[in-house]
Structures are given as structure tokens and as C-alpha cells.
Design a binder for these strands. Structure first.
Lengths: 201, 201
DNA sequence: CCGCCATGTCAACAAATGATGACTTAGCTG
DNA sequence: CAGCTAAGTCATCATTTGTTGACATGGCGG
């Protein structure tokens, strides 16, 4: 945004536009984001967006492509239920994602009815559920029955819900919960969902 | 909408407008809903909305006021953790809310940045969390420590997440999950959150 | 039957917003 | 330095959408 090395530097300007757009898309959704505001954030003329991204939809797709998925990041895939719970705690803690302001999954969820984005969004959530299953020791989809997949998706839904609730309300203490505070309850949930207490004969 | 008894009947027309608006607000959010579409749904002129609700914001607030809260409905407040889990299973099952199409909580979450709606939304979610606490045997807020409140809010977030994920994606098997299928996992989650397995000394 | 008033329609305005082509300027290259 | 091209600006258009005042009309009370 305030990059000094951006004097008639196309790549840097394009990048700045992308970041400004991503920030607004995450906070305000597709409809709520105006191209004029994005251009103003960067201090550049509206028409440049057309040059670099063709249209608002092009800008949105580029922003989506440049945003990490739900359980994706660089943390690597958690190998067991405990590290999965820890990864969730960190992803859902208050200070996480300082570069986005909100949880990046919100951008996907606030998208317009575009077909390609819909597919991307569904895939991202399914991927997350599969990662949960992997952490539970199931390497392939067919390895798990529908009930287990449903349980994994419920865990993903919990993550989505936390992100949504935090961004939409000031609900305390959830709003400011740290990873440390989330850790204990989330461990309980993960364990209960993926390793039910009394289910084996 | 297709009420035959609606020939120059102000009350019925007003009600039809309210229902059409509610449906669109829930599915498409505040920004995504246009007054022209709402009027067209009812088969009435756009200007009538101004007459009955003053403005789009007035229409939205009326729709919010006429929509049940999260754990509110008429089911009554669940008295223990098991009936709480069952109530959740039913509220979050695929066929629930036939009169809205989606879970009504989505209307609150997709609201514009209006101050009063923000407050309403926060209050609705807090109420839901308090109901969860009540089901856990805590009659007042002060009765519970922050950790327990956080756990209750996580359960509410799970509900919100399920509603959001279902409305935004075709994620299976969550999308079509019945109350029966949700029951077992949700019981595990509720128990784990509200009655942690190994916490007492 | 007739007029009145609630009910509803019509046409038009203004603001916001995405899209677009013509124009300008800075910085490199020869 | 001259000039060409990429980078950026400007003014404007078309569309959508909320808002609004003037107008039409149907049913009910007298």
C-alpha cells in the first residue's frame, strides 16, 4: 500500500491493488467492495484496475487465487488429533491473520454467485475436511464412512462459524480469545468428534 | 405470496412483502436484495414498500423483528445437555426451516453495518450462548466463568458455521444431513464442550 | 348512486458504481 | 536529447437501485 518503491512500477502497483482488494473483499464481501475504494486505497486511478484485472470479477478471482485456504497455510498438515487441535487454536485465535485483518476463509464465503468461485469454495472446505480426516489417521476418502466425514465437516463448520461470529459481532470472550484459551475446549471438541469416547464395542 | 385474499388488503399485502423480503434477505443478504425484486415477488409496485416500511432499512428491520432467533423458536429452552443436543440436531438438519429456505440466523449475519442491527445480532448470539449455559445447569451469567462461556459460544459458533456452510456450499454429507445423522456427533460435541471428560481433580 | 379515502401505480430523479476510450506523462533506449 | 512505449489519469457513459411526489382506482359509507 505505502510502498515507496512504487513509482511507475507495474508489478508493485498490481500487487498493491491485489492486497487492497483482498482486504476489502474479506471485510466487506464482493458486493460491499467498490473498485473506487480499492483504487483509492492504493492511491491510483480506478481505470488501472481494468488494465490489470479486466473487471471486478477478474480482480476478485485474482484475490481468491492469492489467498490461503482454510487449513492450508504453511503450517504443514497436522499429523494427529492433538496437533490438529493446536493448529485450529492458532488459526482461530484473535490475533491470527494480521495480514488480512479477518480470517481469509471469509472471502470465499462472501463471494457472489459466480460459478467458478462456488466450486473453489466447495473444494476448499472439502479439502479442509479431508485434512481433518488425515489427522484422524484416514489417508483416503474411501477409507472413511459417511459418519466420519460428517464429523470432520462439522469440525470445519466450527472453524467457519468462529470466523464468521468474530467478524460479525463483538461476542466476548470469543472475540478476543487467544490460542491458549481456545486450546482446551478445541481439544475436547476434536477428540469428541474424531475419537468418540464410547463407541467401540 | 399467492394469497387470493389479497385484493386491496393492506395488512395482507404488507405481510406478503415482509415474507418475500425475509426470504431474500436470508438467501442473498442485505446488499444482494433489491426492492424491485421484493415488490415483483409479491406482484406489487415498488413504491408500496416505501408506504409500508418507509425505506429499505425499515423493511429490513421489520423482517429481522419477525424472524426467530437462533435457539429461540418455540421449542422451549432445553433443560439438559441431551435435549440441547437434540434441539441443535433438529435446528441444523437439512429440512428444517422450510418456511425460510435457509436458517434464519443467516439474515442477522448478512446484515449491513447498521448499528441497531449489529446490537441485535450480538444480543441474539449471546442469548443463544446463555441458553446453552442454562442447559448446562448454570442459571445466571455470573454463575459461569469465562472458560465455560467461551465453550458455550463455541457451540453457538458451530451452529452458525453449519448454517453458513450449508447455505454457501454443497458440501456433502453435511448439506443433506438429517437430524438423525447429526444427533450422534452433536451429542459428542455438546458433551465434550459443556461436560469435559477429564477436568475435575 | 356517488364521492372519499385507503390502496396501489407511474414516471422520473439522483446517487453509486462498473466499464471504457481518449488523453497524458514518465522513464528508458538509441 | 528525441521519441517511443508502458504506466497512469480523466472525463464520460450506461446501468442499477433507492427514493419520491403526482396520479389513478376500487370499494365502502352515506
Amino acid at each position: 500500500m505505502t510502498d515507496v518503491t512504487r513509482r511507475r512500477n507495474a508489478a508493485a502497483t498490481r500487487q498493491a491493488l491485489l492486497e487492497a482488494a483482498r482486504d476489502r473483499f474479506i471485510r466487506l464481501g464482493y458486493e460491499g467492495t467498490t473498485l473506487r475504494d480499492v483504487a483509492a486505497d492504493v492511491g491510483v486511478n480506478l481505470a488501472l484496475i481494468k488494465r490489470y484485472f479486466s473487471s471486478k470479477e477478474g480482480l476478485f478471482k485474482a484475490a481468491v487465487a492469492a489467498t490461503p485456504r482454510f487449513l492450508g497455510r504453511d503450517d504443514g498438515i497436522p499429523g494427529d488429533v492433538h496437533s490438529l487441535a493446536d493448529a485450529l487454536s492458532h488459526q482461530l485465535s484473535a490475533g491470527a491473520w494480521p495480514e488480512f485483518g479477518e480470517h481469509p476463509v471469509l472471502m470465499l464465503l462472501r463471494a457472489a454467485g459466480d460459478e467458478r468461485v462456488d466450486a473453489l469454495r466447495g473444494q476448499a472446505l472439502l479439502d479442509a475436511a479431508l485434512q481433518v480426516l488425515a489427522a484422524a489417521g484416514h489417508s483416503s476418502v474411501d477409507d472413511a464412512d459417511d459418519d466420519l466425514l460428517l464429523r470432520a465437516e462439522l469440525l470445519v463448520a466450527l472453524g467457519v462459524g468462529v470466523a464468521v461470529v468474530r467478524s460479525a459481532t463483538g461476542l466476548q470472550p470469543l472475540r478476543d480469545a487467544t490460542a491458549g484459551q481456545l486450546s482446551s475446549p478445541l481439544r475436547d471438541v476434536v477428540t469428541a468428534l474424531i475419537e468418540p469416547p464410547t463407541n467401540a464395542p
